[in-house]
Every structure is written in C-alpha cells, then in structure tokens.
Amino acid sequence: MNATPPSPIATGLAGRCPRCGEGHLFSGFLTLADTCESCGLDYSFADSGDGPAVLIMFPVGTIVVLLWLLTDALFGFPFIVHILLWFPTTIILSIALLRPFKGVMINLQYKAGARPGGGPGEMEG
C-alpha cells in the first residue's frame, strides 16, 4: 500500500480502488464490485446515483450542439445527415464517459468519508 493516498481523480478515471489505487472498482461495465481484491475495502459506502449521468449530459450536449451548428454553418448538410452524424456521436460520447465519471464520483465519496445512509426518518444525534 502506498504511503500517500492515491488521487481520487486519477484512480476514479482508471476505475481503481480509492484506498489503495490497485484493485478494480468495477466488476462489470457499470457494476460496482463488492470489495477491492487488493486491499479488501468494502464498497458498500458507494452510491453515485444519477450524478455521473447528469454531469455527462452538460458537456456532451454542449459539444454535440456546437458541432451540429458549426457543420451546418460550414457545409449546410440536410437534417437527416445531422441526425446520422450527431445521434451516434451523442450515444458514443455518453457511454465512453459514464464509467470514468462514475469512478471519480465514487472515489471522491470515499475521500469525503461517505457512508451508507439510514432509512427515512433516521437521524443521528
């Protein structure tokens, strides 16, 4: 194990354990592993929810709309060509960015000391 904790951004983008930076964070494409196979960290604290998807919508939407407008101004493509270009681009960019964003969010949760929440009405005091 390293003396200094690994960067949550670097380990998140790589899909690695937030504590040791070695073990895998995911057991599937977006399925979180139960524990780190390297240091044994229990990932039950992690709940990224819809955060990564929301954070991806803004840059992907901006990129696709700007490219759509730019290519329309420069080349004047028909509408169907734009659909054929930008629909797959939107899907590909979204899928490509989802796993790294989820990894970063989970690693930042670990660094912030996130723990599983209680049920409704449960308050610590």
Rank of each mutant, 00 (worst) to 15 (best):
W68Q: 13
L69Q: 15
L69F: 13
L69C: 14
L69D: 15
L70N: 00
L70G: 10
L70R: 05
T71I: 14
T71M: 14
T71H: 12
D72E: 15
A73Y: 04
A73I: 02
A73E: 11
L74G: 08
L74V: 10
L74E: 11
L74Q: 11
F75H: 08
F75K: 02
F75E: 00
G76W: 06
F77P: 10
F77L: 15
P78D: 03
P78I: 06
F79R: 10
F79T: 14
F79H: 13
F79P: 04
F79I: 09
F79D: 13
I80S: 15
I80N: 13
V81W: 08
V81R: 03
V81A: 14
V81I: 14
H82N: 04
H82E: 03
I83Y: 05
I83F: 06
L84V: 11
L84E: 00
L84N: 00
L84A: 13
L84F: 11
L85M: 09
L85E: 01
L85V: 02
L85F: 12
W86P: 07
W86F: 15
W86H: 15
F87E: 14
F87W: 01
F87H: 07
F87M: 14
F87P: 03
P88E: 02
P88V: 01
P88I: 01
T89E: 08
T89L: 15
T89V: 13
T89G: 15
T89F: 01
T90Q: 08
T90P: 07
I91G: 10
I91A: 14
I91W: 09
I91N: 05
I91S: 10
L93G: 00
L93N: 00
L93R: 00
L93M: 08
S94H: 08
S94P: 11
I95P: 01
I95D: 00
I95C: 09
A96Q: 09
A96N: 04
A96G: 02
A96C: 09
L97V: 01
L97K: 03
L97P: 02
L98P: 01
L98A: 11
L98R: 12
L98N: 06
L98Y: 02
R99I: 08
R99K: 09
R99L: 09
R99C: 04
R99F: 09
P100Y: 05
P100K: 01
P100C: 03
F101C: 08
F101K: 06
F101M: 12
F101G: 10
F101E: 07
K102I: 02
K102V: 04
G103M: 07
G103L: 05
V104T: 08
V104E: 05
V104M: 13
V104H: 02
M105F: 10
M105N: 15
M105Q: 14
M105W: 07
M105K: 10
M105H: 13
M105L: 14
M105P: 09
I106Q: 07
I106E: 03
N107H: 08
N107Y: 09
N107L: 05
N107I: 09
L108E: 12
Q109N: 06
Q109K: 06
Q109P: 07
Y110H: 14
Y110D: 03
Y110M: 07
Y110W: 15
K111N: 14
K111I: 00
A112I: 07
A112G: 10
A112W: 14
A112E: 15
G113A: 06
G113I: 01
G113T: 06
G113R: 02
A114N: 07
A114C: 11
A114H: 10
